[in-house]
């Protein structure tokens, strides 16, 4: 396809991207987020390059100042702060994206079903959603996080591993954060299903699943994406809160949240250990919120 044909028949996505690009703050937010992801992934090469092991505690070099091999110095157990921040970033961002994605999948399925089928299905699913929203969140999460996985039939090795705490926190957050997306999808679906092209699709012989996936979902995707970006920010913050309370990612696996937790007793002696992860959480959430605002404008149908 030629360049002119591309602009002539620009897909909605191309036009949205063009609008998003014009928003400076949102673009800056996106650059910062990509930068943070790359920073986190740089842990592997940098660890090899500097020849250090971030999980290796060295009590003789506790609170060592920055040096040629340990660019941000050592923490209270003599581990390299920079590499741990990078690994922590991997965990925190992965939790954020995974929990948001999982929540979106649940929310979209429930919202589509409720909005499209209406009637009893709608009433049932939405009362269920209301129920989830009405649950006292923090106590519930603390209880869920305290469940002993070995009693659920998982092996002791798995239950103690970092992976278990990762999956657990992703699942817990996803089980909570889908409600917002479900309500949004339901509302959009209600208006889309009355549009003539949905009837036209039925008239041309499309089945329910095909109509949901091809006619309804592409037309409700815009508010979903905007909502996901906002959910992502709150999920990263939430992971930090849970880890700070000690119910999230279990040390020695680092996350920005549990690094902050570790640093709290040392705030007077080594304030930087708290400031670094705090700053990263702060930057990530701000960047994600800027992106969310930009997406909101880019997807606004009135801007078409």
């Amino acid at each position: 396809m030629t360049a002119s044909a591309m602009t002539l028949h620009a897909s909605p996505w191309q036009r949205r991207w063009a609008r998003f690009r014009r928003n400076r703050t949102a673009l800056a937010g996106l650059c910062v987020l990509i930068g943070l992801i790359m920073f986190s992934l740089a842990a592997f090469p940098l660890e090899a390059f500097l020849g250090i092991d971030a999980n290796n505690a060295d009590l003789l070099s506790r609170f060592d100042p920055p040096s040629a091999t340990n660019w941000l110095g050592h923490d209270e157990l003599g581990r390299d702060v920079l590499i741990r921040l990078m690994y922590g970033g991997q965990v925190s961002l992965a939790v954020g994206f995974a929990a948001t994605f999982l929540g979106a999948v649940i929310g979209i399925s429930i919202g589509l079903a409720a909005g499209y089928f209406g009637g009893r299905v709608d009433a049932l699913l939405m009362r269920f959603t209301d129920g989830i929203i009405a649950l006292p969140l923090l106590p519930l999460l603390i209880v869920l996080a305290a469940i002993d996985l070995t009693k659920l039939g998982f092996s002791t090795d798995f239950a103690r591993s970092g992976a278990a705490s990762f999956y657990r926190i992703v699942l817990i957050i996803a089980l909570i954060d889908w409600t917002r997306i479900a309500r949004l999808v339901r509302a959009s679906t209600l208006s889309i299903r009355e549009r003539e092209f949905v009837l036209a699709a039925r008239v041309s012989g499309a089945g329910t699943i095909r109509i949901l996936l091809r006619s309804v979902l592409p037309n409700v995707i815009a508010p979903i994406i905007v909502a996901c970006s906002q959910v992502l920010g709150s999920v990263i913050l939430f992971e930090a809160v849970l880890s700070f309370l000690g119910f999230g990612i279990v040390p020695p696996t680092p996350s920005w949240g549990n690094m902050l937790n570790n640093a709290q007793e040392l705030v007077a002696t080594a304030p930087l250990l708290a400031i670094y992860p705090g700053l990263f959480i702060f930057t990530t959430v701000i960047a994600v919120n800027f992106i969310g605002d930009g997406l909101q404008d880019a997807f606004d149908p009135r801007a078409e």
Binding site: H9, S11, P12, R195, E196, F197, L199, A200, A201, R202, V203, S204, G205, A206, G207, R214, S215, P218, N219, I221
Partner: peptide
Amino acid sequence: EWPEIRGKRIAMVFQEPMTALNPAMR
């Protein structure tokens, strides 16, 4: 069996061409 009939044996043209096409599909 209705989906087999619709679109193949009986088809329909709508009043509003603005809304009878899916805005998100080529």
